[in-house]
Design a protein around this nucleic acid. Structure first.
Lengths: 185, 185
DNA sequence: AAGGCCATGTAAGTAGTTACATGATTGA
DNA sequence: TCAATCATGTAACTACTTACATGGCCTT
């Protein structure tokens, strides 16, 4: 139940249409909770029906832009959600699962995948640090900016973690396995 | 499409019934790809229909244990999946989203949540390190064990990352926000 | 008037979650 | 024989993904 709250947050930051939200999800909120435009339009409809947001007056025909803003009930819902008790979800990572499978059926073809992931994480890290330099250079940031910076630093820290772990994994892959190889001599 | 492959991996490690799989997911494979018993039974049915696994001869009535083992086609499918090209999924983390929302609607009530998550990650780290000491103490591990250890170290690294980040976040929370507080004098 | 993009949607399918049902076995 | 637990499932729902449809606007 996080998508509606991600949308409420985005709309509070700035009232937007569905497509504008989609764009912002692609480069900001979506770093931590991604969504496609189909999900967003559907969810906007539900939120409007639930009385948490409403469309700003506009020609309501197809192909026309409809901007939404958050109603007091929507802000209240979001405020409650922020402090609601939610257990952390366990890790769900297909690559780790694939390594585990590789321990059983063999590691053939996995190395290029690790390399691809390494490249991808390096690119993501570069994007985050660019945002950090652009948006969080203030000497005395506001409380809100300090929170947003904290969130970004989580993203940065995770990318750094994966880069280090993938490097270690690649080193392990490139070095011949010890236990199951023919020994020389 | 990872659950069937998680199950194939588990069954190759050791042929099992649905409930045994559920238990193993709770304490091993599930650390990286969790699943409930309902998912597992449904998926076992699909895998059997697809000819990737088959049930060992057993009374096929309700309430009786049915153990499965992987067929050659299942092993082939898993082997292919291991090297298949898959982009890494973006982060999906409700807590980060909540911090971001807190930057808009206020951070009231979030601190206890951060503390709860910190406790939870410390417990998970303790569980992982216990497994590491128990299962990966060998001086000359086999290639398979080195892979499995690599996976476990990813889990350990992630827990350490979250513990550090949450500690930083709590420090930020306990120190009065700079920008939006009444100044003394 | 044709093609491309902007903008909003529908439909169908897959994956995961939550709640409940039911038979078999075991120990009090 | 009753309750608890083991073991396997069904049903309904929610969330997410993928593919496609449609109308409006702008440029050529």
């Amino acid at each position: 139940m996080s998508l509606p709250h991600a949308i409420l947050t985005a709309l509070l930051e700035k009232p937007s249409s569905g497509l504008e939200l989609t764009r912002r999800f692609d480069r900001s909120i979506g770093f931590f909770w991604s969504a496609t435009h189909q999900q967003i339009y559907r969810e906007l409809g539900k939120l409007e029906q639930a009385g948490l947001i409403h469309a700003l007056p506009q020609p309501p025909s197809r192909g026309q832009k409809r901007a939404y803003e958050v109603l007091p009930a929507g802000r209240a819902e979001l405020t409650g959600w922020v402090s609601r008790s939610q257990d952390p979800k366990p890790i769900r990572d297909a690559l780790l699962l694939r390594l585990r499978a590789a321990a059983v059926v063999g590691r053939d073809g996995l190395e290029p995948e690790l390399e691809r992931h390494l490249v991808s994480h390096r690119r993501q890290l570069a994007e985050y640090t660019a945002i950090e330099e652009r948006d969080f250079a203030a000497v005395e940031p506001s409380g809100e900016d300090r929170l947003r910076h904290l969130v970004l630093r989580a993203g940065i820290g995770l990318e750094i973690f994966w880069i280090e772990w993938l490097s270690e994994a690649l080193a392990e892959f490139r070095q011949p396995p010890a236990g199951d190889q023919v020994h020389p001599g």
